[in-house]
């Protein structure tokens, strides 16, 4: 893939308009309005079960919203036809909470799959695969099967697969859960690096306050009780200045009692 020069920012990369999410009749979150700009590291915060993973699934088009719209670079995903959806999706990289590696393929084949699907050349695939695996610290594990490596390694391999195509937007569900502190730190560095070098926009669901403060530049706080967003903004700023006490205490917890939310 050839890198384009950074585009002039006309539209936010992602924008939701009055997004309402349901499972059947059950309301999960309503009336979400937020924008994610080019180069943002956008974090989705909130207590357990408030609908963070659900929001992510909506953003990547796995679930469709009950009401409202999701707009990518000014183009509505909801009203787009299958072909333009496909094109939008090819610019995304997604890592799942569990890694979601294909268990009957080696790590190399896993990472190669999106490349092959995008029509990359056989000879370059091998080199790219090696490079991406090295980026996540898994160089030399090409021929291992997912069942032969640890959970944290699966997660990193999932990341390697997600960044195989140099995505414009990276979606993460709980990237650092299950990683040791050092790997978690490395992951944060990697994310920052991807943002700085190729301008990737990153959307993260995370519970790790430390990494939230270290990398996030913007975010949204979902609440399970009112079933809507309580506040938006940079977590570092929200921690001191949020108008909602719940948000402040959620974020302050990290300093007083360790991140145990």
């Amino acid at each position: 893939m050839v890198m384009d020069a950074p585009k002039t920012i006309e539209f936010p990369v992602i924008e939701t308009r009055a997004l309402t999410m349901r499972y059947g009749d059950r309301l999960i979150q309503k009336n979400l309005n937020f924008k994610v700009n080019q180069g943002d590291i956008f974090v989705i915060m909130g207590g357990s079960g408030c609908g963070k993973s659900t929001l992510l699934k909506h953003l990547i088009g796995l679930n469709s919203p009950a009401e409202g719209d999701i707009v990518y670079n000014g183009e509505s995903y909801i009203s787009a036809d299958e072909q333009s959806r496909q094109q939008m999706r090819q610019r995304w990289g997604i890592t799942f909470q569990s890694g979601a590696l294909f268990s009957d393929m080696t790590l190399a084949e896993n990472v190669a799959l999106p490349l092959r699907h995008a029509g990359a050349h056989r000879s370059e695939i091998r080199d790219i695969v090696h490079y991406k695996l090295s980026l996540v610290g898994l160089g030399g594990y090409e021929d291992y099967f997912p069942s032969q490596i640890s959970g944290g390694m699966c997660k990193r391999a999932g990341l390697a697969r997600a960044i195989a195509l140099d995505p414009e937007i990276l979606f993460f569900d709980e990237p650092s859960a299950g990683l040791d502190p050092l790997s978690a730190r490395r992951l944060d560095d990697l994310i920052l690096h991807l943002r700085d070098s190729i301008g990737t926009t990153v959307v993260i669901v995370t519970h790790e306050l430390a990494s939230m403060f270290a990398i996030a530049s913007n975010g949204i706080f979902l609440d399970a009780v009112t079933k809507t967003a309580l506040d938006h903004g940079d977590p570092n700023w929200l921690k001191e200045h949020s108008r909602e006490a719940i948000v402040r205490s959620f974020l302050a917890r990290g300093e007083t009692e360790g991140s145990q939310l």
């Binding site: 699934k57 990547i60 088009g61 796995l62 496909q86 999706r89 090819q90 995304w92 997604i94 799942f96 909470q97 569990s98 979601a100 590696l101 294909f102 268990s103 799959l113 999106p114 699907h117 999932g158 697969r161």
Partner: peptide, 17 residues
């Protein structure tokens, strides 16, 4: 079924496959 539970099918969909 295991692929579905393990989110592998979702991963495929999001790759456009």
């Amino acid at each position: 079924g295991a692929m579905q539970v393990n989110e592998e099918v979702d991963a495929l969909k999001t790759m456009g496959i």
